[in-house]
Simulated assay, not measured.
Amino acid sequence: MTTKAITNAAYEWVDERLGISDLITFGKHKTVPVHSQTFWYYWGGISLFLFLVQCLTGVLLLVYYRPGAEAYESVRQITYVMHFGWLIRSAHSWSANLMIFAILVHMFSVYFMKAYRSPREFGWFSGMALLGIAAVFGFSGYLLPMDELAYFATKVGLQIPAAIPVVGPAIANMLRGGTEVGEFTVQRFFALHVVVLPAIFLPLLGFHLWLVQKWGNAAPPSIEALPKEERKTMPFLPTFLRKDLAMWLISLNVIALLASLFPWPLGKPIDPLAPAPAGIHPEWYFMSPFEMLKLLGNVLPGAIGEIGGLLLFTVGILLWVLIPFYDPNSSSGRRGRNAHYFGLVAVFALLATTIIGYWTIR
């Protein structure tokens, strides 16, 4: 019996039980729109790839990381003692930031292509939930090295939930495991980072990917307005998948270059009695709400300014998430234009407050 015959027999045995040929047939019949904005379709796949890098590098770090009082020492050993530990940690940190950036780009491309319209509303809602969880992933993971920068930045970041009226201080104390950031905070953030969030994120990601396969990629309104025979498409298998994998390869090279040339630093050990070092601030994806709290705090007195900034940001997020109900279909012309302008205002406000936040750091 030849090797080819053995391979064919094995494939037929697996295919009979798993239906691989049905998936291949589905992939060949599935098409992806081709137009001047097709490039933006790849950002969803890039986000998925970066999440897979997070999972792989996170498992490797988990082997040596010790939460609690020994958190800093374990990260120091990973960074300076373990073979290639610095590379794995740098790849994990860089891919985390790149993943949130890729999800944001994907979200804005979906928004401006009106891909939240019927029947894709649940794809929009699940995508927004994934972005929120990814941000919490970043916030919880930032503290785990428990160095000086992570310690004080987490204290600053917890000011945002603490500003919520009535329940805010209780939420902040629950996250900290007390009134101060310490080893109990690390343990809670570690459990949140490696158990709770993945348990929520993974099924939600599966649901989101299923919706994408069910409804396909949405084309911009200008393309959907064309007669069906004038719209260009390409098959998902192998054309789009091959290009998508090429984007994954480019992303892997970007991570490798950043991790190699700019290794993620480990700061000084914590000295709670020492003053906070200059330039402490939240991570870049939390800078906008933090700056809104600060700006309104300078205009309005005390807690009123903080609550006003938090309320303003919360209302903006709710309007953003609920946009499918305001602009449900292509027939809502005026609403569609208003939604487009609202998107431009949101982009400008996000960039402006982030830039101001970094500009005023001292």
Results as ranks from 00 to 15, higher is better:
233 T>R: 06
334 R>I: 15
251 S>D: 02
84 F>Q: 12
198 P>V: 14
162 A>V: 01
268 K>V: 13
203 P>Y: 02
169 P>I: 02
185 T>Q: 00
208 H>M: 00
67 P>S: 12
219 A>F: 06
336 G>V: 14
200 I>R: 00
262 F>C: 06
183 E>F: 08
286 F>H: 06
93 S>Y: 15
350 L>T: 14
196 V>E: 01
82 M>K: 12
4 K>S: 10
34 V>T: 11
108 F>G: 04
236 F>K: 05
343 G>P: 07
142 Y>E: 13
231 R>L: 15
106 H>Q: 08
215 W>K: 09
270 I>T: 04
125 F>G: 09
109 S>K: 04
275 P>E: 15
10 A>D: 03
347 V>D: 01
73 E>S: 12
335 R>Y: 12
223 I>G: 02
328 P>H: 05
170 A>D: 05
34 V>M: 10
237 L>E: 03
277 P>K: 08
314 T>P: 05
180 E>T: 07
109 S>V: 12
269 P>G: 04
335 R>L: 14
196 V>K: 00
297 G>L: 00
235 P>H: 10
299 V>P: 02
107 M>F: 06
156 V>M: 09
8 N>T: 10
114 K>Q: 10
278 A>G: 05
231 R>P: 10
314 T>I: 04
43 W>E: 06
231 R>V: 14
20 I>Q: 00
90 S>N: 11
47 S>A: 08
11 Y>Q: 01
291 E>W: 13
116 Y>N: 01
